[in-house]
Computed example of a mutant assay.
Amino acid sequence: MEFEGLRVVVTGAGRDTGRLLAAEFAARGARVYLSARDIAAARATADLINEDGRGTAEPFACDLADPGAVRDFAAAVAARTGHLDVLVNNAAAYANGPDLADASDETVADLIGGAATGTTLLVKHLLPLLRASARPDIVNLISGCGEPGHHRSTAHPAFYAAKHAQAGLAGILSHRLRPEGIRVISLFPPDFVQDGPRTAQAMLTARSVADCVLFAVGQPRDCFIREFRFEQEQASLGSPA
């Protein structure tokens, strides 16, 4: 599928899945505005993309836990384009540990503030640009941790809380924005790896997650794919839920 000339925002694109998504959109002709907390990481991703010569990328610093930084990023995008076709909400801080005491107060606030408040504010400030598009999509990389009854991840409880907040936002936005033709597409992958064998017995890979995003965005406008729900890899199915 081709995305020639599409305007795409990808958050958390300084590494891993965000970098992969930004590169895949650009490889298909998109113009990508990518963000990361660390501007050096964002620039490194943009440099990799711009060396390819198909689509283009422009880097920005944005800490989703900082409302001012979110507003500045949205304003910078608005200064460069009159519309936005795809917003990929990928960025989210992560912490491990089963007990609430396994993370500091600052880490808890950062986790929930970035993924919940930051994502909400970014959608709010970019919505005028999405409304100006002929084919707007909002894509949310949530996590299996945002599914009711999911207990398999070793993520910190604050990460679970943040992802449930994102899932709630995505659900109501899908309902309220659909009449305007804005598709809200959410993915709930289990814990996954960046690289690995793409076999039935292996863990989900970042490239498979990215392929789902590209597939959904590339569908005709009468096709509203609301959610991708994933089965856990086989090795975890025998462990306690």
Rank of each mutant, 00 (worst) to 15 (best):
G196Q: 13
G218T: 14
G238R: 13
A46T: 09
T56L: 07
N140L: 04
E24Y: 02
A202H: 14
G181C: 10
I185P: 00
E51K: 15
E106V: 14
D110P: 01
R226H: 07
H150C: 00
F60M: 03
S208A: 08
A26G: 00
G171T: 03
A165Q: 06
Q166K: 03
R15Q: 11
G29D: 10
E2S: 14
F188L: 02
D47A: 15
V108P: 03
G113Q: 11
V213S: 08
E58Y: 10
A241N: 04
A65K: 03
G97R: 06
V88K: 07
R37Y: 06
H125W: 13
G118F: 09
A132T: 14
A23Q: 00
G144Y: 02
A13S: 04
N89Q: 13
P128K: 08
V77I: 12
A116R: 07
R207Y: 02
L177G: 08
H156T: 07
G114A: 15
V86I: 15
V209L: 04
G82L: 02
A101D: 11
S239Y: 02
R54F: 04
A30Q: 08
A78H: 09
V70D: 04
L214K: 14
A78V: 10
A116T: 05
F60D: 00
T154K: 12
G118H: 13
R176Y: 11
T119A: 01
A216R: 07
A200N: 15
N90T: 15
D66L: 10
T205H: 14
L141Q: 01
A92R: 07
L21T: 03
Y160P: 00
P220I: 14
F159L: 02
R54E: 01
R31G: 05
D16A: 12
L237F: 04
D63L: 06
H151D: 00
P179G: 08
Q201C: 01
E233P: 12
S35Y: 12
G168A: 09
K163T: 06
A200Y: 13
C223F: 15
F230C: 02
G97D: 05
Q166G: 09
R37Q: 09
N96E: 05
R226K: 14
A134D: 14
F188I: 01
P157F: 03
V32Y: 11
R221I: 05
A101V: 15
A103I: 05
A235M: 07
A162D: 02
A46M: 08
S208N: 03
Q201M: 08
I39A: 11
A101Y: 13
D66Q: 11
A202D: 10
F188Q: 01
V9A: 01
T107P: 09
A79G: 14
A165F: 15
L204A: 10
S186K: 04
